[in-house]
Design a binder for these strands. Structure first.
Lengths: 188, 188
DNA sequence: TCCGCTTTTTGATTTAAGTCAAAAGAAAGA
DNA sequence: TCTTTCTTTTGACTTAAATCAAAAAGCGGA
């Protein structure tokens, strides 16, 4: 999904505004396994996934990778707190498939926020939308059995479920990969 | 915490702007156990907790109450999706202590968003901040033992932990209240 | 095409936390 | 103050899911 279309679904920018906004983003192709943000470093960009999939994850106290969120096509992503507070990132941001990504720095973004009232609104709407999504995830995890959590995954990310390795999904859902494998088997 | 102070920490409104904004809120005292939002009804207000504590919860498939979030002093609260989409609420919003609450309707709020660029920014900052908070909660729940989840509660809401019934905290943390009781005992 | 590496599956065993039931303690109301 | 009701604790037992270990399947590169 193109960024322009996506923005238009949320706020009705004029042609000129849209053009100006888009001109502040940089487009690049990123290949599988590439790490866009390292843990401990400051995340300088906000990204938009035009094509592909990414995830952010962190290492728990046992050194195990825990997937926090997946980002599919048409989604903004970043190490949010790091980006906005310019603090060291708790997360890695990793590309899972060869992807096309648009990026913008905080300076450029703030400039757009200052320039356009509508841009600020876009930011608010995006943050609100993401917030409700994340709240849904909490519900899906808290007090739900492993089986129910997988059902949530299927309904929330039907596409992603079959495009990324099982182990990553297991860590996203908070279960071991053996458990997820057994659940999948029963589903057939 | 007064709303005016709180707003000022995020965006530097002028005196007049602040006054105008505040005039759109309605202040009321609400007593313990009162339900501000019912499941199934549309949540028409955004609330700010000046004094007191509230929580939102939902009923799971067994009819058990699951606490989603606690809202302490100086926090905005609502049934977010219901409020913004004007859709039936999935959650109840309940007052846990006699409280002082400010409220504003969506119409009034949208009016302020249209009138002030800065107001839109405030909305964005609030949503972003809440988003990072909620993301932290996911981490604390996913892949953490019951004991670690309680440690998270203590660090995140040191005040609330001892002001609300144990059973509510247990449901917030995704564990049975017996388990939480046992954890607390070990802590002494 | 074959080899080596990664991912997934399967089986056996352990364990953290849930459930059920009842007692103890605290708070609220008459 | 004494009931009554709500909340928390305790104990015994069960269970879902983790862990450990190893086999099987899938994939990418030479």
């Amino acid at each position: 999904m193109k960024l322009a279309e996506f923005l238009h679904t949320l706020v009705d920018f004029s042609e000129e505004e849209l053009e100006d906004i888009l001109s502040h983003f940089e487009r690049k192709e990123v290949s599988k396994n590439e790490i866009l943000v390292e843990q401990g470093k400051i995340c300088r960009n906000l990204y938009f996934v035009e094509k592909g999939i990414a995830r952010n994850y962190y290492l728990n106290s046992d050194g195990k990778e825990i997937t926090q969120l997946f980002f599919g096509e048409g989604r903004f992503m970043s190490s949010l707190e790091s980006f906005f507070q310019e603090s060291p990132s708790t997360y890695y941001l990793e590309i899972l498939e060869d992807s096309v990504i648009l990026s913008i720095t905080k300076e450029q973004l703030d400039l757009l926020f200052d320039r356009y009232h509508k841009m600020e609104r876009l930011g608010r709407l995006l943050a609100t939308e993401m917030l409700t999504k994340v709240v849904h995830k909490i519900n899906a995890i808290q007090f739900q059995s492993a089986r129910e959590r997988y059902d949530f995954m299927l309904s929330e990310y039907p596409d992603i479920t079959y495009r990324v390795p099982l182990g990553l999904i297991a860590s996203y859902l908070g279960m071991s990969q053996e458990t997820l494998s057994r659940i999948r088997k029963k589903k057939l």
